[in-house]
Computed example of a mutant assay.
Amino acid sequence: MYDSLRTNLSNLKNNKFFELLVVAVIIISALEIGAKTFELPDSAVSITTVLDVFITVFFLFELAIRFIADDDKRSFFKKGWNVFDTLVVVVSLIPVDDSEMALLARLVRVFRVLRMVSVVPELRVLINSLIKALPQLGYVVLLMFIIFYIYAAIGSFIFNDINPELWGDIAISMLTLFRIMTFEDWTDIQYETMEVYPMSWVYYMSFIFLTAFAFLNMVIGIVVGVMEEEHRAARAQKEPSLSELQQELREIKEVLSELQKK
């Protein structure tokens, strides 16, 4: 009986309509969270309360289906997304009103929108790619910090007398350089220093080339490379392996040989 139940729940979990229903509930949850940020009439507040209970119960039901339908239950909580979904569902059971943990419960309900990532495989590939790219991105960030530090020290020494609010010390200079890298009114800063040092444009042009162009392209290249590897791994999981195909061919041959004997 348990095997029959697990099979039925597995079919339900893999059903496209059920997947779309889960996505629809997640979207409703996001809309309900957004609606609570407005001043609502009492009737609308009662509707959002009922919706909140329904969404929490539905997520608990959906998580139970996934757990029962899973072939390897010991490894169920070894998967990061399953742990995340479980934490969100468990904390969502905390009463929001008249509770010391009401603020925590409300904040966790906001994170229910992230369940869209665990439901949609394509979004999981994107997030996994970003996570796996972090070690490589760390070296790029370290190199960028070194460039920031050098340019901030130079800017603090040279431009401090021109505008102490922007170049007063190395920390403020790094914030100013971040503003320049994001092109936030950076020409105003440049023209201000060029009135005293006409060749200071070289300082800004070289910094922008290194950070906004070179490092940004390096980050994009790393993320795209890892994303391609994740897509290949996902396709490899969906496609049957060579050993599985050979096993199926052997089984077909055995069946044909038995039919020929008869």
Score class of each variant (00 low, 15 high):
M1D: 10
S10H: 12
L12R: 07
F17G: 05
F18E: 10
F18N: 14
E19Y: 12
A24W: 01
L31W: 09
D42W: 04
S46K: 14
T48E: 10
D52M: 15
D52C: 13
V57N: 04
F59Y: 15
F61L: 13
E62C: 06
L63C: 06
I68F: 11
R74G: 10
S75W: 00
F76E: 01
F77P: 08
G80L: 02
N82D: 04
L87R: 11
L87D: 03
V91N: 13
D97A: 12
S99D: 10
M101F: 15
A102Y: 06
L104K: 11
A105M: 08
L107T: 07
L114A: 09
R115V: 01
M116G: 11
V119L: 11
V120D: 02
P121H: 07
E122L: 06
L123A: 08
R124D: 03
S129V: 09
K132Y: 09
A133R: 03
V141Y: 08
V141H: 05
I146G: 14
I147G: 04
Y151V: 02
G155P: 05
E165D: 12
L175R: 01
I180V: 15
M181E: 04
F183L: 13
E192R: 07
E195L: 05
V196W: 03
P198K: 01
P198C: 00
P198V: 03
Y204K: 03
S206H: 02
S206P: 00
F207I: 09
F209A: 15
F209Y: 09
A212L: 08
A214S: 04
A214F: 11
F215W: 06
V223N: 07
H231R: 10
A233R: 12
R235M: 13
K238V: 11
P240R: 07
S243A: 09
E248P: 00
R250Q: 07
K253Y: 00
E254Y: 01
